[in-house]
Simulated scan of single mutants.
Amino acid sequence: MPLNTTATPIDLATWSRRDYFYYFTKMMPTGFTVNVDLDITATKTWLREHDYKFNPAYLFLVSKVLTKFPEFRIGRENEQLVRYDVLHPSYSIFHADDHTISNLWTAYDPSFTTFYQNYLDDVKIYGRQHTPAPKQPQSANLYMIGSIPWTNFTSYVPLPFTPLQTFFPVIQAGKFTEHNGKWTMPLSVTIHHAVADGYHVSQLLAMIQTVFNEPEAWLGE
């Protein structure tokens, strides 16, 4: 199945966020991070009962939520701002032998079972290659999403050292924590202020929590 890279050009003359985009890219370049504790109890239980791994489910659920939020799918193609139909998750695989990582990506698919199998295939084919980015080529509509499963952080802020070519979110999860039968996971969302405000990130996080509360509805076929 061809990789979905469909994008719609953004008409700056009619784009409601045009002035804010200019302000936050030219006059006061700004981004921000919001960190929350995500309740993963229902999803963790459902995955265990159905013998699924957590990480691909996490990647799938967040990617599916992003299809509902056009603000978070804005990139550039040849200096033209575009809005992609979907974003594909780009994540890291940890190598236990030398403590390095490799960056992989899996094509988003609206079917969890299809995405899950594609994830397993990608890890099997590329997961043992000790290079930074073994799966090529890299699509323009990949977004960064990962986890630091050893650390229960309260804040995570990625620091780019080159000019941004896209305005996709950077999403990072942390270590699971259990308290009185409730499992939580820290989740960080970093976004450029040019495309989203605190309201948009709050709505995104609220929907992510909703889908993690309702795994059968979002993961079941």
Rank of each mutant, 00 (worst) to 15 (best):
M1R: 11
A7K: 04
D11N: 14
A13E: 14
A13G: 15
T14C: 05
W15G: 03
S16E: 14
D19P: 11
F21I: 08
Y22H: 15
M27A: 14
M28R: 14
P29E: 03
F32S: 10
T33I: 05
V34C: 09
V34W: 02
V34H: 02
N35H: 04
D39C: 08
I40Q: 01
T43R: 00
T43M: 00
T43H: 01
T43P: 01
T43G: 05
T45H: 07
T45E: 09
L47M: 03
L47W: 00
R48T: 15
R48V: 09
H50E: 05
Y52F: 14
P56W: 15
A57K: 01
A57L: 05
A57H: 08
L61A: 02
L61V: 05
V62Q: 00
S63Q: 04
S63F: 04
V65A: 03
V65F: 08
T67N: 04
K68M: 12
K68V: 08
F69P: 07
F69C: 07
F69W: 09
P70V: 11
E71G: 04
R73K: 11
R73L: 01
R73A: 01
I74T: 03
G75A: 12
G75Q: 04
V82C: 07
R83G: 13
V86W: 04
L87E: 00
S92T: 14
I93C: 12
D97Q: 13
D98A: 07
D98H: 10
T100D: 01
N103C: 13
L104R: 10
T106F: 14
A107Q: 12
Y108F: 15
Y108T: 13
N118F: 10
N118W: 11
V123E: 13
I125F: 06
I125A: 13
G127T: 12
H130S: 08
H130G: 05
H130L: 02
T131W: 06
P132H: 10
A133Q: 11
Q138P: 07
Q138T: 13
I145P: 11
G146W: 08
G146R: 13
S147R: 12
I148P: 02
I148V: 14
W150Q: 09
S155N: 09
V157T: 13
P158A: 12
F161P: 06
P163T: 13
T166C: 05
T166V: 08
T166G: 08
F176I: 09
H179V: 10
N180T: 11
G181T: 01
G181W: 14
K182R: 12
K182L: 08
K182G: 02
K182M: 06
T184A: 00
M185S: 00
P186Y: 03
P186M: 00
L187K: 02
V189D: 00
H192E: 07
A194Y: 09
A196T: 05
A196M: 06
H200A: 12
V201H: 03
L204K: 10
A206I: 08
T210F: 04
E214R: 05
G220E: 06
